[in-house]
Design a protein around this nucleic acid. Structure first.
Lengths: 387, 387
DNA sequence: GTGAAAGCGCTAACAT
DNA sequence: ATGTTAGCGCTTTCAC
């Protein structure tokens, strides 16, 4: 069937020679669609067809010109690009995706962006991805597996190119299924059901080192306060703590450990309060969560506890305020930036290689102990700084 | 034309009665498309057509069943939903968008997610939007207008439903054009070219109050350190500082002011160092940027400056560490959570109302002065806390 | 060097 | 109660 000129818009564009286009008399062979109804002046989104009509060429020519196809003459290309720019044309990614183009969106699924670990990660990812033309979709789970599932459904519906996820303790079965259909990467936490590609830090070693520092100073009553054991990170950190105690000849089973289910600032405060008033209070405290660390610091400074004389403390993570807290907080530093950058680069490469390389991959970054002034021997002597 | 059964996949699904469907003999009237070439076992994304074929119904029936259309029988609905779930069907949003559905994505364009103001905002927005089924696309500009433009292009290509933006000092002309085609909202900073819908805080009043606090204590040599004047926030804060000086009978023109172009932690440190070694050093300092505040605090605590005896300081923003810094940092508190929540609710409503209400809208939240211990009279007496 | 036409997955209007 | 058809904007054959 011969395709006739489209049924004109109610008011033809001024730049079009009305006489040639206004063929409404013979129209009737072609249904007038919603698109044709649009009125001049009524602002709407420009498509390749709009450009084609204005220039009196076909949509394919416009598409090719914009894609810099070698078959199109320079003159046409110029005119098309000019018109596109003038008319404010912006390609429709949804349409492209329907033609098989992959989305340029990567989903980032994390517990809470306000946690500086995660905002740092988001920043590094965003920076590295922007350079490659990718966008970041932010999805906060609040460590709720149902929220996590809802987000993954959305990301899946959007057909994101990839997902970077800090999974909840036990992801929903449907979340597992969904992730099977999209390239993904676990960050920090690792759940076996979500595959073998993981970027993280050596939590065990980090906590072992921190605890060993206190053992070396002569502490025997060392308490641990960290995240829940059901999280892989929580379990590893606790294990590191216990390893150090055992290695130091201490009984890991009788050591005071508190695991805060929702690892929040407020729980840190409460746990600290309990610890201070408990009989047989510890002389040293190791932390295994950045949120809990914040709460502990607030509580200690509010109660006027003298650190390290009354209590030695080793924090987790390194935030701006930690260096000026009390005598300076000795803490476990994690190479978050490096990890996030590595993660971004790996995923970008993974998404751009034709045959997807889905082999297992693990990158473990080591932690480090940042020694400041918050620990000392239990007898009161200050800790030496040259560790 | 009668549409014949599709050319079968190389290997028909087991659940299909092969005899009825395997009509390859008479095929030739219908082109075999890429889609038909897919092989069983070859994992791919499920579409409504896959479900329809498996159940021997039409795609429209499947679509209607999934949309819970009243015309479809409960039995069919059940079968369709069952099959969809089993096969792991996830609707393709790109396809829906092509049918006119609006995207459920809102772009958040901010300078840097690591800044706690912005991560708080991102969190509040995300939380409120998740409840309404919206997703958040994160775009960091690093205060670079070209990066900002690139992000807006991407967001536009994605046909985001809306944009929340903390604009750069002078957005690119194309950015302005792009934003004209999408519902948007300015946050904190306000640039006249980007429309009249804005959520922010009363920067002028916040700084006026902070400065007035120092004037009331008797300071006459008060310095100001804040962000660049080309940012609307920077200009307003500086103006607030000057207003307070003038109201206090001091000469606003001779006051020492430093405006750091890229408002970073490091610039805060450097500026503080300059201020300390300058002849005729000020007795009090007011800050107008959270990043600069951090740098200043680090430098002061590193140099062992006695606050408030040697110098009174009022910070900007309120971060976790500010309360335990030195004598406790007196600072300007901003109601970021409230502002972000209001912003989210407003945009959600704006996006869901049929006739877009595009009238000007301004929401100004007031700041507050959080009095702790970092200011005192220049003669050495500590500041009274009952302001 | 350019145009026509088909089809990606979905929905809505129009048939039965 | 269900099927047929067209079309959203774009790319990609195939055709001239």
């Amino acid at each position: 069937m011969l395709t006739l000129a489209r049924a004109g818009r109610s008011t033809p564009r001024p730049s079009l020679p009305t006489t040639e286009r206004d063929v409404s008399a013979i129209v009737g062979t072609r249904k007038v669609t919603a698109r044709d109804q649009r009125v001049r002046g009524d602002p709407y989104v420009i498509t390749t067809r709009d450009i084609a009509e204005r220039l009196g060429v076909s949509v394919s020519t416009v598409g090719r010109a914009l894609a810099d196809d070698p078959r199109i003459s320079e003159e046409t290309k110029f005119k098309v690009r000019q018109a596109a720019s003038e008319m404010g044309y912006v390609g429709n990614r949804a349409a492209r995706m329907m033609r098989g183009a992959s989305s340029n969106v990567v989903g980032l699924v994390i517990p809470d962006i306000r946690n500086s670990f995660y905002s740092t990660i988001a920043h590094e990812l965003s920076k590295n991805m922007e350079a490659e033309g990718f966008q970041l979709m932010l999805a906060e789970t609040d460590d709720d597996r149902m929220v996590e599932l809802r987000h993954l459904r959305e990301l899946s519906a959007t057909r994101v190119a990839g997902v970077i996820i800090v999974p909840t303790a036990r992801p929903h079965g449907d979340s597992v299924k969904l992730l099977r259909t999209v390239p993904h990467l676990q960050l920090l936490r690792r759940h076996p059901s979500l595959g073998t590609q993981w970027f993280g830090v050596d939590d065990h070693e980090a906590l072992r080192r921190a605890t060993a520092h206190l053992v070396a100073e002569g502490h025997t009553r060392i308490a641990y306060l960290g995240g829940p054991e059901e999280l892989p990170t929580g379990a590893e950190r606790l294990r590191g703590f216990r390893t150090a105690l055992t290695e130091g000849g201490l009984n890991a089973d009788t050591a005071r450990t508190e695991l805060a289910p929702p690892s929040s600032v407020d729980h840190g405060r409460q746990a600290m309060r309990r610890l201070l008033t408990a009989p047989d209070a510890p002389t040293a405290l190791v932390l295994g969560s950045i949120q809990l660390t914040r709460g502990v610091l607030e509580e200690l400074s509010e109660q006027g506890v003298e650190v390290p004389r009354e209590l030695s403390v080793i924090g987790f993570g390194d935030e701006p305020g930690f260096s000026w807290w009390g005598p300076g907080l000795t803490t476990t530093g994690l190479p978050i930036e490096e990890m996030a950058t590595g993660c971004a680069l790996w995923l970008m490469r993974r998404l751009k290689t034709k045959p997807a390389n889905d082999g297992p991959y693990t990158s473990v970054s080591p932690g480090s102990l940042i020694v400041r002034g918050s620990t000392a021997s239990p007898d009161g002597r200050a800790a030496s700084r040259d560790h």
